[in-house]
Write a protein that binds this DNA or RNA. Sequence first.
DNA 1: GGATTGTGTATTTTT
DNA 2: TACACAATCC
Length: 748
Amino acid sequence: MADHRAVEPLHHAQEPPHLAGLNPEQYEAVTAPDGPLLVLAGAGTGKTRVLTSRLAHLLVEGRARPGEVLAVTFTNKAAREMNERVEALIRRPVQGLWLGTFHSIGARLLRRHAERIGLEPNFTILDTDDQQRLLKQLLEAAGLDAKKFPARVLSGIIQRWKDRGWTPDQVPASEEGDFALGRGIELYRAYQQRLATLNACDFGDLLLHNLTLFAEHPDVLEAYQRRFRVVLVDEYQDTNVAQYLWLRLLAQHHKNLTCVGDDDQSIYSWRGAEVGNILRFEEDFRGARVVRLERNYRSTGHILGAASGLIAKNESRHPKTLWTEDDPGEPVRVAGLWDDDEEARFVGEELEALQRQGEALASAAVLVRAGFQTRAFEERFIAIGLPYRVVGGPRFYERAEIRDAIAYLRLIRQPDDDLAFERIVNRPRRGLGEATLAQLRREARASERSLVATAATLCGGDALKPKPRKALGDLLAAFERWRGLAETEPAREVAETVLEESGYVAMWQADKSPEAPGRLDNLKELAHAIAEFDTLAGFLEHVSLVMENASDPAGDMVTVMTLHGAKGLEFDTVFLGGWEEGVFPNQRAVDEGGRAALEEERRLAYVGVTRARKRSCVLFAANRRLYGHNWVSSIPSRFVDELPAEHCEFLQRDGFTATRLRSPGLPPKREGDPLARFNSAKIRKGPVIEAVAETVDDRGPEVDVGARVFHPKFGYGRVEGADGDKLDIAFDKAGRKKIMASFVEPAR
DNA sequence: GGATTGTGTATTTTT
DNA sequence: TACACAATCC
């Protein structure tokens, strides 16, 4: 993203900093008059720079005061960066901007007007874990089999509905799939009711409730419409329908909306993002000006050429051609290897070579499609003592101990937070088990009150056995005490006291598992973070909306992460692992999303290649270990074939390490030239992962994973895997089943 | 009520 | 393989 390189100035030296050194297109975008503006900014063309410069420009020119600017991003990081850069450009702090993520601004608006839609201003923001817990309860209450209908799936369905801006009443009946026997919408409604009772929201609600608020209270909407003279949006290609509607409403009065994005980098459709939003911009906002940024300041000619050739295979896109005045540089190297271990070894050796040439490890990254691929690299890097860091994984606030601690704090702030209560009633163990809890829930439901309120009543009577009654009473008394404390003491004091007195810290101190010390450290870090906040409320908001992984890249190390995680970043050298059919493009994505999903996978490939400034290296392996000891053989990704040959260098066998150590039994013995298979393999349509040789039983007919099969009762399906002589088949109509191989025959 | 054993599942994850 | 969750046992 960062473009710090000097560009020959178009205008003269007296230009203010926010206009200095812009190329003509950037200048046009930054200085464009009021009105809808779409900046189509290819990878590495200075997108963030344009956005921040425009914001600075509008402020400096007095076209808007800070309080009249709404600037939205997707990530906190982007928001922070934007703020810093604007301040750097105009050389003073800016206060009063509405600058933040969609979610944080949605929450801010919602807290102001919560009562208008039946919430209290101190509503809790639930995360995914809470959501699923709640949904699970609802599924159970509805008498549905949690195995067959996992809360995780329902949560996904509801989120997608929310992404499209649908309240339960607005979900079209045709959208009701077969989940939960066609009771999805009903469950969605029940879920929303439950949230309202809990005075809680999930992430999707932060926007959806805004939409409801605006629809039901035009006065509120109008106030904001008038207020926001300027609306700026980053990564517009990633907006979902709800966000689009929200923006359109807010920008409607002044119609002064600037959206920056790149349809070729839309990689979040599975999270509800609609590429259509950016493709349709000119229709949606009449008279919109469109500026294309096509001059790339990041990558060499070969890298750009390879990436452009690849992305040109997509049909749904705004055509654009990136160019650079840079040298062609090194061609993109493409290497085929025997298996994932060898792939990792190859990368390790390359990194060591780079290091010998004086390159910093921190300037290199290994990018993969999915998390499981990082393992081979990690093992190899550990083996050769190469410093690395894996970005991603569970976030700080998703860790169990942090969530527990936060549940205590939430409960102090909002006694009716049943989810928080359930989480910590018995952590540490207080002898309040399932039986007591079930009784509590029953009573609570009957009296339509929260668990804490019910518990208080129950402790007064003799419905509970003495032991649990005492334990529960003590806990409630403790909370009363802590709430009193919270009135006077700073948030950090409160948190520390609570964690001590509740026995929570002691619980981990007593724990002898190897993770325990780390967890205690995390709790300390949490307390440290709280110190920055005056109020518990402020901290909790921060935690649910902002808090990120504490990942300080201390020292010189290689970054290993997923392609999704790499968006917006850049490195001198990038290794792109696992370019095999099935892995990348990911089989499941293609199965579920068809051509559109394939194009998204291709965009992901494009994002990957364009992360590199100087060197890009694409890798694929003939054999790969999936979960433990399942080996799959695969053929190179079609994306490998789509890389224009004139920008690539295909490494020959000589480039590989010839000798290998192999653990017993696995995988298929190497016969002849491993590349021979690749060279002869033509990308085939249809099934892509060839076979799970080890797991298909000899007695049954050999059926390839990925094969289409027919079953007399369940109809057509696709073989997903094999276990002995049973095949794991995903039937088009009947769902996923394990079937004896002899019952099916190849389709057609 | 708590510990233990067994079973099923396994993309991507800005908030 | 690894992990989460549920059924099962003490």
